[in-house]
Design a protein around this nucleic acid. Structure first.
Length: 298
DNA sequence: GCGTCCAGGTCTACC
DNA sequence: GGTAGACCTGGACGC
């Protein structure tokens, strides 16, 4: 089944897909030859694999089987959500156009950060990125999908639900997922979400100010400043810089002649962009990711 | 092949 | 409020 979605005029498919590492973290797959994003999405009565690519004025979505009107509507909603098609980046582009160093961001339509269909999936993945190499993150997420995901008709699997994760003891996350000390954190998060004690999807509509929402995010065990600020970016809030070792090294190299730099200095550098500073920083640090020699390197 | 060291972000205990 | 040490894994390195 094929679905077409009209592209927003300022939308850049490639910049969105390669906006960060999510596109290669299961169940996402990135086909760099065909420039296609593939993943399994939940649908009734069973999950479906979708392939997403771009034409000149539309985004093309093909599904591994035909769908009811309602299921197709849900897939459409998920794709719009993942690609941030309904985000209004006009104020962001106006802000960067005022500075010659950053006007390329508006000209290229960068700034839409790929996200998962649910905040829960993004949150679990974010915890799996903390305090470890990217290779280990991939291993943990792959194990979650393999062990607990639901199978689509082509054999590919979806990301597990909180309910599926909550059915397993801490030992499972330690031994089978190789989550190490994160095992109790994942178990507790899944249990809180599955029981309804914590509604992470409501963060998308939250009107809480930055600091208060940060406090709520950090109430989740395993989520500190880095993970919370990164998750906020996926929710659409860019006040936080989400500094980690990679960004510090990258900033030192690209903006400070290779010399180590304090977090305060990085913060000052982007402060003029106010509530967009986190997004400007991320675009600035990843500007060369679309260069042919870098595509598919991670 | 084995042992040791190190990087990575968060939590907790302590000052 | 700030800081030190523990948490766990896998890769790099030396022997």
């Amino acid at each position: 089944m094929k679905i077409s979605i009209k592209k927003p005029s300022d939308f850049n498919f490639r910049r969105t897909v390669l906006s960060h590492g999510w596109c290669v973290l299961p169940p996402f797959e990135f086909d760099k030859i065909r420039w296609t994003l593939v993943r399994v999405l939940d649908a009734a009565p069973r999950p479906v694999t979708v392939k997403i690519s771009a034409a000149s004025s539309t985004i093309k979505v093909s599904t591994s089987r035909s769908l009811t009107r309602k299921a197709a509507g849900n897939i459409l909603r998920d794709v719009r959500h993942m690609l941030r098609l309904d985000d209004n980046l006009l104020p962001f582009y106006q802000a960067v156009l005022a500075d010659p160093k950053f006007e390329w961001i508006a000209h290229e339509g960068a700034g839409r950060l790929l996200r998962s269909p649910t905040v829960f999936e993004d949150l679990v993945k974010m915890i799996c990125t903390t305090n470890c190499s990217w290779a280990l993150t991939e291993k943990m997420v792959q194990a979650l999908v393999n062990e607990l995901g639901r199978e689509a008709d082509d054999g590919c699997k979806s990301f597990p639900t909180a309910e599926a994760m909550a059915e397993h003891p801490e030992k499972f996350f330690r031994d089978r997922i190789r989550a190490g000390y994160r095992a109790p954190y994942l178990r507790e998060l899944a249990e809180r979400v599955a029981s309804g004690a914590l509604n992470v999807e409501s963060w998308l509509q939250s009107e809480l100010p930055h600091n208060e929402l940060m406090k709520e995010l950090k109430s989740v065990k395993g989520v500190g400043n880095y993970a919370a600020e990164n998750l906020l970016k996926l929710i659409g809030r860019y006040d936080g810089l989400a500094l980690d070792s990679w960004i510090r090294t990258r900033f030192a190299r690209t903006r400070n002649q290779g010399r180590a730099v304090s977090d305060k200095k990085i913060s000052r550098f982007y402060s003029r962009f106010d509530s967009w500073r986190g997004l400007v920083l991320w675009c600035d640090m990843t500007r060369d990711w679309l260069d042919p020699e870098n595509v598919g390197k991670w």
